[in-house]
Design a protein around this nucleic acid. Structure first.
Lengths: 368, 368
DNA sequence: TTGAAAGCGCTAACAT
DNA sequence: ATGTTAGCGCTTTCAA
């Protein structure tokens, strides 16, 4: 790991100036064939790799896009993830045999943000951008996001807790920023969101119209824009069907988890006909809690989710849900960024993508 | 999007020198409280964000790690992914309702590389590194990987086709490089791999000892280190059991896909007792082909995979497989990189991680 | 076609 | 505690 060779080293070895070396890499055809060969040989011999930092500095932009996630999507730092000890390189280690793996990994990954990220990655690569991804816990997010900003030409951010709004607005005065799944507003950011309201309305309508249900309970954390819109869609559907419209959902909070909600409901003499959950994650947790209380889904009560994560296809019964076009969202995010980078004077754009109700088993629709 | 403010602008506005501004951000406690306040206010007013390029250049390192994937894990660029048209921001769009989604997305994502990547991401964030991820098709991979190298302090690479070996060796002379799932060899790179041989041996042994099978067919693409080791483990188990050891697997190639293998096998008068597949992906494809020919798994023939991807839990019957500790691999990759960055003089390390046989339904073990 | 030279924005001695 | 100054490696006019 010798000191990194620079243009100077290459120039010296090739017997040319640094400008020629630079030119050889940037605009090869502007350099005489012969010279180019010599420079390339020197570069190769020296293991020369241009420094992106220097280039970015001189050039004014970095050629990279950034994607930032906040603590809400990070697992607790319990360190358990790295807890696999390496084995000897040559030994014939005993290989454990287990009956199915009871692990729940599929419930934590991939979440919908990860599928959106996948879309971002694919689009970046196709366009030749490098992608810098970062994340941090709430405490240091302002610092860390700033750290990312310094090295990218555009930034995408996933939902975050309040308090970062100002930081993002400031950032958006420097580089384009697009916020995913946040309330589109006039904050200088571009926005990509989905049809939460319509999706939840259609889902609810399915339960009411196709399954003849009348007693539905909306369950979920209500601290995001998506959640509020979904609840609004739920209410709209009930209203349209002439059913009683609840003022509040069964709101989950740190002190009131799914387990508690289930216990509460079971304490009443009748079960609702369906739990309409704000997300697949909640729905899956709920089904688990229900199973522990010997309540059968969908026979005794239906359960629906929202998002369309893979986990919903793993669980039994398979989860009926509203599917977000996650990868497409990622593509759109990059589209916007690239567009805004090309035209920094333009104004922020907001785009909404369509969703789809996906009927599986948990609502009572039979297995296809 | 005005021109980005710099230390000079902040310094001028705060009435201090640029060194003080820099100091305020790098070592706040070395600056008088009062001065710090002034500088911070000026920075805030100006929307100042330090340039990572400049910092990296001055400082000598970037604070970022890189992760590179090659074309084998990229989907065909058919552009179909972005094909979701935005809908009007205010309209009440019609929401389609479909019975289950026939889409196969879960088979393409997350693959095992994505779960390893997830581990890398988590570990990077915990350690305060930014993560730059890149990918490219075979044609331009040498260029693109070099582009990444210029902006990171350490690089991890997923399996690649030959031809990149030289490039990587050269790179490893500049920054630490760790190769995932490649043959550990004395090429200057660090290596992280798994117990392919032991895992496949144990899997095969389960089939032979617990299910009493004697006629097993190994199926898979054989163009990777992992694949070769797995086949070796398969043979070792047969040999140990006193069964006939095939010289060659049913090798898949571009011209000989799973469909063909199934057709070939069906043309014989007897089916093997089990298809032992080199990966979950092959196993899932195979089960699909089998289903199309009305062959029932596991009743008529068992199928096993290798990797432990989520898709194996989605398919019916659930796939019996050998599970790699994917996230842990990612953590180990970062561990190594960080270690090697701290001690550039040290030598490359190679680490092997243990696997686990996971019994589900496709081998004939009943549902738990 | 190639070279000389002036930055790009920041850090870290060193000086004050 | 703060200011001066010399780079860090590269790109890009402008000259030759």
């Amino acid at each position: 790991m010798a000191k990194a060779p620079t243009v100077y080293d290459v120039a010296e070895r090739a017997g040319v100036s640094i400008a020629t070396v630079s030119m050889t890499f940037r605009r090869p055809h502007k350099v005489k064939e012969e010279t180019r060969k010599i420079v390339e040989a020197a570069a190769e011999a020296l293991n020369y790799v241009p420094s992106a930092s220097a280039r970015g500095l001189a050039h004014g932009h970095t050629g990279a896009l950034g994607l930032y996630s906040f603590d809400i999507f990070l697992p607790e730092p319990d360190g358990s993830l790295g807890g696999v000890a390496p084995i000897s390189t040559r030994s014939r280690a005993k290989v454990p045999v287990v009956r199915d793996d009871g692990d729940d990994d599929y419930r934590r990954f991939p979440l919908y943000v990860h599928e959106v990220q996948r879309g971002v990655e694919l689009e970046c690569w196709q366009r030749g951008y490098a992608l810098l991804i970062g994340a941090a816990s709430r405490a240091d997010s302002a610092t860390r996001v700033t750290d990312i900003v310094g090295r990218v030409d555009g930034l995408a951010v996933f939902p975050h807790h309040s308090g970062l709004g100002d930081v993002l607005e400031r950032i958006s005065r420097r580089i384009p920023v697009v916020a995913v799944s946040q309330r589109p507003q006039d904050d200088g950011l571009s926005h990509v969101s989905i049809d939460n309201r319509g999706g939840m309305r259609a889902m609810t309508q399915h339960l009411v119209a196709d399954h003849g249900m009348r007693d539905l309970l909306f369950v979920g954390y209500m601290d995001t824009f998506d959640a509020q819109e979904r609840f609004a869609g739920f209410k709209a559907a009930l209203r349209a069907a002439g059913l009683r419209v609840p003022a509040k959902p069964a709101e989950l909070t740190v002190g009131n988890d799914v387990e508690t909600v289930v216990a509460d409901v079971l304490a009443r003499d009748t079960l609702p006909e369906a739990f309409v959950c704000v997300s697949d994650e909640v729905a899956i947790d709920l089904m688990k809690a229900l199973a522990e209380h010997q309540v059968r889904v969908p026979e005794q009560v239906a359960v629906t989710g929202f998002d369309g994560v893979v986990a919903g296809r793993v669980v039994r019964p398979a989860l009926t849900t509203v599917r977000q076009p996650m990868q497409a969202m990622g593509h759109v995010v990059v589209d916007i960024l690239v567009e805004r980078i090309a035209d920094p004077a333009g104004s922020p754009v907001t785009r909404r993508l369509p969703v789809q109700v996906v009927l599986r088993e948990s609502c009572g629709c039979s297995r296809p």
